[in-house]
């Protein structure tokens, strides 16, 4: 019986099925909102689904000299890692699995898709793809530290490394959320880097290096990579929601799910606004920005949280 419920969790909710449907829906919302902001019409509601079906029905072409097994396995690993990360993030009042330190586990699980992007570019053996994968790796060193640092502040305040405990802490002390605004902004910007969106979409900047790390990918494999990015968007939004916006506010049941959907949608709206109002920066500028501004800001957030915890709240 336990086996069956676990399978349901992984395959349906909050696993693959939920993530895929909500991810593609958010991807559509992102594109549509961006289009409306740009005074365009934008894609119809079934566009992302149609894209996936089209890619799934296309032939998969594997370049000469590529490591065939790795080339084929990577998209599945990316999707699996994202689903696993989602299992630790609370949607309803309690997460499916939780343990002390699951926040660190989620951050590392979210690094796995990035690593697969790097390997995907590397194993394609085309110059554009290798440039893309080099940039993926360089970018990883840029955003990963500020992102992790921005998550440390709330963890210190809550006195726990578990995502559920942190969101529970904030739902009992909602005042504390106002002090997390710097960390919230830092995490929003660094997640743009993780999801490879404007202004940090250099790894697959189409004007520069065509498709970046995915240049040689086609068919269902490319579809799965795109799906994994969509799912990653949901997971990142859910993570920010749980850590900075107090998660489900202990509501439980359907209300918490609705709250989750509303809040993640709002976060994606912020992602879209950032995407719509900036130009793409160069990879060296991106790394410099992350270390010069984002990382110190995240440190300030940590200091604020330490001060709060050990002086004011004593």
């Amino acid at each position: 019986m336990e086996m069956i419920t676990a399978l349901v969790y992984i395959a349906i909710f909050p696993g693959f099925f939920f993530l895929a449907v909500y991810g593609t829906a958010l991807q559509w919302a992102d594109r549509k909102i961006c289009a409306v902001m740009q005074n365009r019409v934008g894609p119809p509601w079934y566009q992302t689904l149609a894209d996936f079906i089209k890619l799934a029905s296309k032939e998969v072409i594997i370049p000469d000299g590529a490591d065939v097994k790795m080339f084929k396995a990577l998209p599945y690993i990316a999707v699996a890692a994202v689903i696993t990360a989602m299992l630790f993030i609370p949607i309803t009042s309690s997460p499916i699995y939780s343990f002390q330190g699951d926040m660190i586990a989620v951050v590392y699980l979210l690094t796995i898709p990035t690593a697969t992007f790097f390997l995907a570019g590397w194993s394609s053996t085309s110059p554009y793809a290798s440039f893309g994968s080099m940039r993926v790796m360089t970018q990883l060193f840029g955003y990963e530290v500020p992102m992790l640092l921005s998550l440390v502040g709330p963890a210190i305040l809550a006195g726990s490394w578990s995502i559920y405990d942190i969101s529970a802490y904030f739902s009992t002390n909602p005042k504390m959320l106002f002090f997390q605004i710097i960390g919230f902004i830092v995490s929003l910007l660094s997640v743009q880097g993780k999801l490879e969106r404007v202004p940090f979409d250099t790894p697959h900047a189409k004007n520069e290096i065509v498709g970046g790390q995915f240049t040689e990918y086609s068919g269902i494999l490319l579809g799965l990579f795109n799906l994994s990015i969509d799912m990653e968007m949901v997971v990142c939004a859910a993570l920010i929601n749980a850590i900075f916006l107090g998660g489900s506010w202990q509501l439980g049941g359907w209300a918490s799910i609705v709250l989750f959907l509303i809040k993640t949608f709002a976060i994606v709206f912020l992602f879209t606004a950032i995407k719509a109002m900036m130009a793409r920066v160069r990879i060296d500028q991106m790394v410099k920005f992350c270390w010069k501004y984002l990382a110190p800001l995240a440190m300030i957030q940590i200091i604020v949280d330490i001060c709060l915890k050990y002086t004011l709240l004593k």
């Binding site: 909102i33 289009a35 902001m37 005074n39 365009r40 019409v41 606004a273 719509a276 109002m277």
Partner: peptide
């Protein structure tokens, strides 16, 4: 920074400029 944001948000309540030829 973010100079284009007010304009972009204004567009949310406007009709698209695309002609539906």
């Amino acid at each position: 920074p973010m100079r284009i944001l007010p304009e972009a948000l204004k567009q949310l309540f406007k009709k698209p400029a695309t002609s539906k030829y």
